[in-house]
Design a protein around this nucleic acid. Structure first.
Length: 395
DNA sequence: TCTGGGGTCCTAGGACCC
DNA sequence: TCTGGGGTCCTAGGACCC
């Protein structure tokens, strides 16, 4: 772990709502809700009135009757996200995107060239504001986890640097659900034991937490409460599944309607897969029933594809197998996702050396010597370790 | 608080192989 | 016929995130 706070977590504030306020001056200073049936994003003016994302539209309007409700404009958000990520990558090559509106940046190597992380973070915020017109909050710390917590505390439009000496003093008074990975279920289990703050978690030993939450979550939470998080910023992560889903109304839905919805969803997903040049092997059918219980059914094909026909065929078989349950309980949501995504590239990880850049160059040369100059399409540093990506080699 | 659409990661059991 | 231990893949469910 680095001895200095060099990891930035940059997180755009109320992203969709801020884009709407940027593009329509009449919305500035007013409560804005993006979405219709459900709140996708709420401006800080709306959040101050209790509106939260994922809240039902009716309830949101009751809390905030004077809110302006606008339909989402995904294309505008995608464009804004691209512009912001360009600024991230101009800042440092070590960028790990987490979602459309947040990323980790490792600026550890930049101190001598550019300046200390706090200055880099401040400059980043100014640039995003000046060039894209959006507010962004940045947390700076020694670990990814703590940088993420810091940005959460600093929101909105803030900057918070957690100095290594102050880490535990910062962390321990916070409520447990501030921790990344602690949701309603885990928080409730801890609350039953009277545990509300991170400091209280830190006073428990690992076996106690494991017995309370299971081995995975228990060990994870124990480490986080002591600010142990060795994960490096990972460049070039690609998504491992793509899906689409559709909520249905309350009434009965005949099989022909369900089949049409399913075909539309598969078509949407395969279209996106082909556009992204990805193929996949595992089809998962996701259902939500009238009583809000859920079920999934999965099938794995022998080889990856992005074609509609084989994936739809598999999805249809899965849907047929679930018809008895659908008949019994009613269905309110259908989703399809394709996982085991294979982008036709291979990734190679090389052993750690003192000079990863040079090691990477040598590996690229070696592969090109053997397979031709077209063999390597991209060579990237994955975190601080060298790695390269090339088209799938013949067997 | 009655719930949209897009994801990630973990766990656990069973099949199958060596 | 009965047997161990390890590894990988697949399926299903669940918690969590934005």
């Amino acid at each position: 772990m680095p001895s200095d706070a060099t990891i930035l977590h940059a997180d755009l504030d109320a992203f969709y709502a801020s884009v709407e306020q940027r593009d329509d001056p009449r919305l500035r200073g007013r409560p804005v809700i993006v979405g219709g049936g459900v709140v996708l994003a709420a401006s800080y003016e709306a959040k101050a009135r209790g509106v939260r994302s994922a809240m039902g539209g009716r309830q949101a309007r009751r809390l905030c009757p004077d809110a302006v409700v606008v339909p989402p404009r995904m294309a505008a958000y995608t464009a804004a996200s691209r512009a912001v990520f360009e600024i991230f990558r101009r800042t440092t090559p070590l960028v790990e995107g987490l979602s459309i509106d947040e990323a980790f940046l490792d600026v550890g190597g930049l101190r001598r060239l550019v300046g200390p992380p706090a200055d880099i973070a401040a400059a980043l915020r100014r640039e995003v504001r000046a060039q894209v017109g959006l507010p962004i909050t940045v947390g700076v710390a020694r670990t990814k986890f703590l940088a993420k917590v810091a940005s959460g505390v600093a929101k909105p439009d803030g900057l918070l640097v957690v100095a290594p000496k102050r880490e535990l003093a910062f962390l321990h008074p916070l409520p447990v659900d501030r921790l990344w990975g602690v949701g309603p279920v885990t928080a409730a289990k801890l609350r039953e034991r009277g545990i509300r703050t991170v400091g209280q978690v830190a006073r428990l030993d690992e076996p106690t937490l494991v017995s309370l939450l299971g081995p995975g979550a228990g060990r994870h939470l124990h480490a986080l409460a002591h600010n142990r998080d060795p994960r490096a910023v990972q460049v070039g992560r690609r998504r491992s599944s793509m899906g689409a889903q559709h909520a249905l109304g309350g009434g009965p839905h005949p099989p022909t309607e369900l089949d049409a919805v399913l075909a539309g969803l598969v078509d949407r997903v395969t279209g996106r897969m082909r556009a992204a040049r990805r193929s996949g092997r595992t089809v998962t059918l996701r259902l939500r029933f009238g009583d809000y219980t859920r079920a999934t059914r999965a099938h794995t094909l022998g080889k990856p594809t992005a074609q509609t026909a084989p994936l739809l065929g598999a999805a249809r078989t899965l849907l047929r197998s679930a018809l008895p349950e659908i008949d019994a309980r009613g269905v309110t949501l259908i989703g399809v996702s394709v996982g085991n995504l294979d982008d036709g590239h291979v990734q190679l990880t090389l052993p750690f050396t003192r000079d990863p850049g040079m090691e990477l160059d040598a590996a690229v040369d070696a592969v090109r010597d053997r397979f031709g100059s077209a063999a390597v399409t991209r060579a990237v540093l994955l975190g601080r370790d060298p790695g390269l990506e090339m088209p799938r080699l013949p067997d």
